[in-house]
């Protein structure tokens, strides 16, 4: 009896050990690229050339970071480094996120509480926008941006991101609002409040969680975008993803991996920071955007 019992305990313990071992190995697999990326960005080229891929760096400097940020020649661009691209990304992302989230919130509000004839069809039509392969609108969008004089400009990119992001934000807000009791709006109507006052005083104060989700989602999507950035920008308005790609591919002569890695981290830093700070909402956005889509 006791033997059997201890046997069972023994196998249970080994089972747990194997379990943890697998989980940790997988975690290392996910982490290694990040670790290498960071450590490489602080090494100098000699160290990289003669050292190991994974090794304690024999050198430590911010040189690569400085280069990537403000010195490396990217393409034929006059200004050096990723900094101008980074600023472009900010100039694109901030207004695009703001506008698309505001639009999504009021759309969701209408589609949940102020339905009108055809509003469900409208929502269904809009939903498809979440799955649209952007290649299918790339050419007309380029033509239209050219026609209205926004081709290759930051406002043009903002417009594009708003237009193709609003489907997602609307979906987020609508799915959140339909879970609120509709009687809230009815009660407020009887209290004498109108459309906007109900939104400001009742609905918006309840929207913080979904707003965090929507902002994070839009921020990540727009910051990480490459397709629109490369298709609709001029050298003056390219976002950081395009800048990074150009930097990696255009550097003539010797490839400076440390600079490439520092650049990659710079490009990834804002979204990584958001993820680390607000991971819970990030995951919620991912799952809300997909499962309910």
């Amino acid at each position: 009896m006791t033997v059997k019992h201890s046997n069972r305990r023994y196998s249970e313990i080994t089972g747990r050990a194997v379990l943890y071992a697998i989980l940790i190995i997988v975690a290392i697999y996910y982490l290694i690229p990040l670790v290498i990326m960071i450590s490489t960005s602080f090494r100098d080229m000699n160290d990289i050339r003669f050292g190991h891929l994974i090794d304690l760096p024999s050198s430590f400097s911010f040189e690569a970071w400085r280069m990537a940020w403000s010195e490396v020649q990217i393409g034929a661009r006059r200004q050096l480094g990723l900094r101008p691209y980074f600023i472009n990304s900010l100039l694109i992302t901030i207004p695009a996120v703001t506008i698309s989230v505001i639009l999504g919130a009021v759309n969701g509000y209408v589609l949940s509480f102020w339905r009108f004839k055809g509003s469900n069809i409208f929502f269904a039509l809009l939903l498809f926008g979440c799955f649209l392969p952007f290649q299918a609108i790339l050419l007309p969008q380029a033509t239209v941006l050219g026609k209205i004089g926004l081709s290759g400009t930051i406002p043009g990119l903002v417009l594009t991101h708003v237009v193709y992001g609003v489907a997602f934000t609307t979906l987020f807000y609508r799915n959140y609002y339909v879970s609120l009791p509709g009687e809230l709006v009815k009660a407020a109507q009887l209290d004498g409040a109108g459309f906007w006052r109900i939104f400001w005083r009742i609905i918006l104060p309840l929207s913080t969680p979904i707003t965090v989700v929507a902002v994070i989602w839009q921020f990540t999507q727009i910051w990480n975008d490459f397709l629109f950035g490369v298709a609709f920008s001029s050298p003056q308005s390219q976002p950081v993803t395009v800048g990074l790609n150009n930097m990696v591919n255009s550097s003539t002569g010797e490839v400076r991996y440390n600079v490439d890695m520092a650049g990659a981290i710079i490009a990834a830093l804002p979204t990584l920071a958001v993820y680390v700070i607000a991971g819970k909402y990030f995951v919620r956005g991912l799952t809300a955007g997909s499962v309910k889509g």
Binding site: L23, V26, A27, Y30, L31, P33, L34, I36, M37, T40, L53, T220, W223, N224, D225, F226, T241, L244, N245, V248, Y257, D260, M261, G263, A264, A267, A268, T271, L272, V274, Y275, V276, G279, F282, V283, L286
Partner: peptide, 24 residues
């Protein structure tokens, strides 16, 4: 913690992922 580690690549741009793996 593990969940955070498994999921963080999703926060990266595909361009960043491509750059890193290109090197690896």
């Amino acid at each position: 913690f593990l969940r955070t580690v498994y999921l963080y690549p999703m926060a990266l741009s595909f361009i960043v992922t491509g750059t890193v793996w290109k090197w690896l």
